[in-house]
Deep mutational scan, measured.
Amino acid sequence: AQASVVANQLIPINTYLTLVMMRSEVVTPVGIPAEDIPRLVSMQVNRAVPLGTTLMPDMVKGYA
Rank of each mutant, 00 (worst) to 15 (best):
Arg23Thr: 09
Ser24Ile: 13
Ala34Cys: 04
Val30Ser: 15
Pro29Asn: 04
Gly31Ala: 05
Thr28Tyr: 06
Arg23Gln: 05
Leu51Glu: 13
Thr18Asp: 12
Ala48Ile: 14
Tyr16Cys: 04
Gly52Asp: 15
Val41Leu: 15
Met59Ala: 08
Arg47Ala: 12
Tyr63Trp: 13
Leu51Val: 08
Val41Tyr: 08
Thr18Ala: 10
Leu51Ser: 12
Val30Cys: 03
Lys61Met: 09
Val41Ile: 08
Leu40Ser: 00
Ser42Val: 08
Ser42Ala: 12
Ala48Ser: 14
Ser24Pro: 13
Val45Asp: 01
Gln2Ser: 11
Gln44Cys: 03
Thr28Asp: 15
Leu19Met: 11
Asn46Phe: 06
Met56Trp: 07
Asn46Thr: 14
Tyr63Lys: 04
Val41Arg: 06
Thr28Ile: 11
Val26Thr: 09
Leu17Ser: 00
Val41Trp: 04
Val30Asn: 09
Pro33Lys: 09
Ile32Ala: 03
Ile13Glu: 15
Val41Cys: 03
Arg39Tyr: 15
Asn8His: 11
Asn46His: 13
Ser42Asp: 09
Ala64Thr: 10
Met59Leu: 07
Gln9Asn: 11
Pro12Ser: 07
Ile13Lys: 09
Pro29Ser: 06
Tyr16Thr: 12
Pro29Glu: 09
Gly31Trp: 02
Val45Gln: 01
Gln9Gly: 06
Val49Arg: 03
Glu25Ala: 08
Val41Asp: 08
Val20Ala: 10
Leu51Thr: 08
Ile11Asn: 00
Ser42Met: 12
Pro33Tyr: 06
Asp58His: 10
Ile37Pro: 01
Ile13Asn: 08
Pro38Asp: 12
Pro12Thr: 13
Asp36Phe: 13
Ala3Trp: 05
Arg23Leu: 13
Val20Asp: 14
Thr28Asn: 09
Pro12Gln: 08
Ala64Leu: 13
Ile11Glu: 00
Glu25Phe: 03
Thr15Arg: 04
Glu35Cys: 03
Tyr16Gly: 14
Met43Ile: 04
Leu51Gln: 15
Val49Gly: 00
Val6Glu: 02
Pro50Asp: 12
Met43Thr: 09
Pro33Ser: 10
Thr15Val: 14
Ile13Met: 12
Pro12Gly: 11
Ala7Lys: 00
Asp36Ser: 11
Pro12Asn: 07
Val30Gly: 11
Val5Pro: 01
Thr54Leu: 05
Ile32Cys: 03
Ile13Arg: 08
Val26Trp: 04
Tyr16Ser: 11
Val30Lys: 04
Arg47Ser: 12
Gln44Gly: 05
Thr54Phe: 02
Val41Gly: 03
Thr18Glu: 15
Arg47Asp: 13
Leu19Pro: 15
Gly52Asn: 13
Val45Trp: 00
Glu35Phe: 05
Ala64Trp: 03
Ala34Asn: 06
Val60Asp: 01
Val20Ser: 15
Leu40Ile: 11
Pro12Phe: 08
Lys61Gln: 10
Pro57Gln: 10
Ala48Thr: 15
Leu10Ala: 12
Gln9Met: 15
Pro12Cys: 03
Asp36Glu: 08
Ala34Gly: 12
Ile37Trp: 02
Thr54Val: 10
Leu17Gly: 00
Glu25Cys: 03
Ile32Thr: 02
Glu25Thr: 05
Val20Leu: 07
Met22Gly: 00
Val49Asp: 00
Ala3Met: 14
Val26Gly: 05
Arg47Gly: 09
Ile11Trp: 01
Thr28His: 06
Ala1Cys: 03
Ala3Pro: 13
Thr15Gln: 13
Ala34Ser: 15
Tyr63Val: 07
Thr18Met: 13
Leu55Asn: 00
Pro50Tyr: 09
Leu40Ala: 01
Val26Gln: 11
Val60Leu: 15
Ala48Pro: 07
Tyr63Arg: 04
Ile32Trp: 02
Leu40Val: 10
Tyr63Gln: 08
Thr53Arg: 10
Arg47Trp: 04
Met56Lys: 09
Met22Asp: 01
Arg39Trp: 06
Val6Pro: 01
Val41Glu: 14
Ile11Leu: 09
Gln9Trp: 07
Gln9Thr: 14
Val60Lys: 01
Ala48Phe: 12
Ala64Pro: 13
Pro29Cys: 14
Asn46Asp: 12
Asp36Ile: 07
Ser42Cys: 05
Gly62Gln: 14
Ser42Phe: 08
Leu10Ile: 14
Arg47Gln: 10
Glu25Gly: 07
Met43Glu: 08
Glu35Val: 08
Asp58Met: 07
Asn14Ile: 02
Asn46Val: 09
Pro29Thr: 11
Leu40Pro: 00
Ser4Arg: 02
Ala7Arg: 01
Arg23Cys: 04
Leu10His: 14
Gln44Arg: 07
Ala7Gly: 05
Thr54Pro: 10
Val6His: 02
Val5Asp: 01
Asn8Val: 10
Lys61His: 10
Ile11Gly: 01
Ala7Met: 08
Ile32Glu: 00
Met43Tyr: 11
Ile13Gln: 13
Met21Val: 06
Pro33Phe: 15
Leu19Ile: 12
Pro33Asn: 14
Leu55Asp: 01
Ile37Gln: 15
Thr53Asn: 10
Val6Ala: 04
Gly62Asn: 11
Arg23Ser: 09
Thr28Phe: 04
Arg39Met: 11
Val27Glu: 02
Ala48Arg: 06
Ser24Trp: 10
Asn8Glu: 10
Asn14His: 14
Leu51His: 11
Ile11Gln: 00
Val41Ala: 06
Leu40Asn: 00
Ala3Arg: 04
Thr54Gln: 05
Met43His: 12
Gln44His: 06
Asn14Leu: 15
Leu51Asp: 11
Asn8Asp: 15
Ala64Cys: 07
Ala7Asp: 01
Val6Ser: 03
Met21Asp: 12
Ser42Leu: 11
Thr15Lys: 05
Val27Gln: 14
Asp58Ile: 12
Val6Trp: 02
Met56Asn: 08
Thr53Ser: 13
Val26Phe: 13
Leu55Ile: 13
Leu19Thr: 14
Ile32Met: 04
Glu35Ala: 08
Val49Lys: 00
Thr18Val: 05
Pro12Leu: 14
Thr18Lys: 03
Gly62Glu: 14
Pro29Asp: 08
Gly52Arg: 05
Met21Thr: 03
Val45Ala: 06
Asp58Val: 12
Ala1Phe: 08
Gln2Ala: 13
Thr18Trp: 03
Thr54Ile: 11
Val49Thr: 06
Ala64Gly: 12
Leu40Asp: 00
Pro12Ala: 13
Arg39Asn: 12
Pro33Asp: 13
Met56Cys: 04
Ala64Glu: 12
Met59Asn: 06
Ile37Leu: 15
Tyr63Gly: 06
Leu55Lys: 00
Val30His: 09
Leu55Gly: 00
Ser42Pro: 02
Met21Lys: 08
Ala64Tyr: 03
Ile37Val: 11
Asn8Cys: 03
Glu35Asn: 05
Val5Phe: 00
Ala3Asp: 14
Pro57Ile: 07
Val45Arg: 00
Val20His: 15
Leu19Trp: 12
Gly52Phe: 14
Asp36Cys: 05
Thr18His: 14
Asn14Thr: 03
Val30Ala: 08
Ser24Glu: 08
Ala1Val: 12
Ala64Val: 06
Met56Ile: 11
Asp36Met: 09
Arg23Met: 08
Asn8Lys: 12
Met56Val: 13
Pro12Lys: 06
Tyr63Met: 05
Thr15Asn: 06
Asp36Trp: 09
Pro50Ala: 15
Pro50Val: 08
Leu51Gly: 12
Ser4Leu: 02
Pro38Ala: 06
Met56Ala: 09
Leu55Arg: 00
Ala48Cys: 03
Gln2Pro: 15
Pro38Tyr: 07
Asn8Pro: 02
Leu17His: 00
Ser4Cys: 04
Tyr63Leu: 05
Lys61Val: 15
Pro33Gly: 10
Asp36Val: 06
Val26Glu: 15
Asn14Arg: 06
Lys61Phe: 09
Met22Tyr: 02
Asp36His: 10
Ala34Arg: 04
Arg23Val: 08
Met59Gln: 07
Gly62Ile: 04
Ile13Ser: 11
Val41Met: 07
Arg23Asn: 07
Pro50Cys: 04
Leu10Cys: 13
Ser42Glu: 06
Met21Cys: 03
Arg23Phe: 06
Ile32Gly: 01
Met59Phe: 07
Val20Trp: 05
Tyr16Leu: 13
Ser42Trp: 04
Val41Ser: 08
Gly52Leu: 06
Ala1Leu: 15
Val5Ser: 04
Arg23Pro: 01
Tyr16Ala: 15
Val45His: 00
Gln44Asn: 07
Leu10Lys: 10
Ser4Val: 02
Ile13Cys: 04
Leu19Gln: 11
Met22Trp: 02
Pro38Gln: 14
Glu35Trp: 07
Leu55Ala: 01
Gly52Tyr: 13
Asn8Arg: 08
Glu35Gln: 08
Gly52Trp: 08
Pro12Tyr: 04
Pro57Ala: 15
Leu17Tyr: 00
Leu40Trp: 01
Ala7Tyr: 01
Met22Cys: 02
Asn46Glu: 13
Val20Gly: 15
Leu40Cys: 03
Ala7Ile: 07
Ser24Asp: 14
Asn46Trp: 05
Leu17Ile: 14
Val60Gln: 00
Val30Ile: 14
Glu35Lys: 04
Ser4Lys: 02
Gln2Asn: 14
Ile13Ala: 14
Met43Leu: 09
Thr15His: 08
Ala64His: 12
Gly62Met: 10
Met59Trp: 13
Val5Ala: 13
Glu35Asp: 11
Arg23His: 08
Met21Trp: 03
Val60Ser: 01
Thr15Trp: 08
Leu10Thr: 10
Asp58Tyr: 07
Ile37Asn: 01
Val49Met: 05
